[in-house]
């Protein structure tokens, strides 16, 4: 029996001398090939995603006649789009639209952070009657297409004589009506250990104190996300300003961009792309700032 063992042992021994070598060489080669392949695919995807943006920037420096129908980036160089686009009319100026958009977006961010974090804190931590039902109703509003509430909202704001003001665009944000952000914050606050609240309670904190001293600082990543998405949504919003703002001096950037388009006439594409390029700058800036906030939030709190 023992004489058999060496035979059987020999086979694995032979395998250990040849097979691992093969594996080793494959391991050496494969990661490189895999990495190259992975990077090639990633770069290809990045190009596909970024090309339209690069194309838009290139188009903003081309004359109107050289924009549509060209996939390439090259053509005559002109800054006319920027010069004409910045002041589409003698009485209109894009700096005004940028300021208007910025005011609305900043107030929306403040409003959403205020309304949504407070509502989220209440749903996540406080006890009050019909909490579950109210939370269910809040979540159900996520299912409502905005077209359904568009007209009643308009009539409401018209009756309140708030048309042609920024109030319809900003005030609702302070009331925590954005169910998505409330839900986001609720989920985040639920992940914060309750023991921290209890410790604060023992130290004499009220509910407001717990919110201000414990929950708020620990929710920075969620607040960062709320701020970032609110800013982007508000900055890009077209329909809201279209419905509620009539006076061109109150227009936002998307409404200003719409002044260049006319499906029944000739569009000023050079100016459109030039101003669209500029309109991306605040978005990118805010995104970078919020991204830092997000990362800082994670690193300082250690909470994911």
């Amino acid at each position: 029996m023992t004489g058999v063992r060496p035979d059987t042992d020999l086979v694995p021994a032979a395998q250990t001398t040849t097979f691992p070598m093969g594996v080793l060489t494959r391991r050496n080669r494969n990661p490189v090939i895999k990495a190259i392949a992975r990077h090639a695919v990633t770069i290809a995807i990045v190009i596909v995603i970024l090309y339209p943006v690069v194309w838009m920037i290139a188009a903003s420096f081309r004359p109107d006649g050289q924009i549509i129908g060209r996939l390439g980036l090259l053509g005559s160089f002109t800054t006319a789009g920027y010069r004409h686009g910045w002041a589409p009319d003698s009485s209109l100026h894009f700096s005004r639209f940028f300021l208007n958009s910025f005011v609305i977006a900043a107030l929306s961010v403040v409003g959403n952070i205020f309304g949504c974090t407070l509502a989220a804190y209440a749903f996540a931590r406080l006890r009050f009657p019909a909490k579950r039902i109210l939370f269910g109703i809040l979540l159900a509003t996520l299912l409502l297409p905005y077209q359904v509430t568009l007209v009643p909202q308009y009539i409401l704001f018209a009756k309140l004589h708030w048309l042609n003001t920024y109030i319809p665009l900003v005030l609702p944000r302070f009331l925590g009506v954005d169910a998505f952000f409330v839900f986001l914050n609720v989920q985040f606050i639920r992940a914060i250990p309750r023991e921290l609240d209890q410790a604060a309670l023992i130290d004499g904190c009220s509910s407001w104190g717990i919110f201000r001293r414990i929950i708020l600082p620990l929710s920075l990543p969620a607040i960062g996300a709320t701020a970032m998405f609110t800013f982007i949504n508000s900055w890009n919003d077209f329909l809201g300003p279209l419905l509620y703002l009539s006076n061109p001096s109150k227009y936002t950037v998307p409404l200003g961009l719409n002044l260049f388009i006319d499906s029944t006439g000739t569009s000023s594409l050079g100016s459109l792309f030039a101003m669209a390029t500029l309109s991306l700058v605040p978005l990118i800036g805010f995104f970078l700032a919020s991204q830092r906030l997000l990362v800082e939030g994670i690193s300082t709190t250690g909470i994911k």
């Binding site: 568009l150 308009y154 077209f238 279209l242 419905l243 409404l255 719409n258 388009i261």
Partner: peptide, 17 residues
């Protein structure tokens, strides 16, 4: 003023109100 599509979109809601 607005583009044709946006214009009638707005006008529809305004008529409703």
């Amino acid at each position: 003023t607005a583009d044709f599509n946006a214009y009638f979109q707005k006008l529809g809601v305004e008529a409703a109100g």
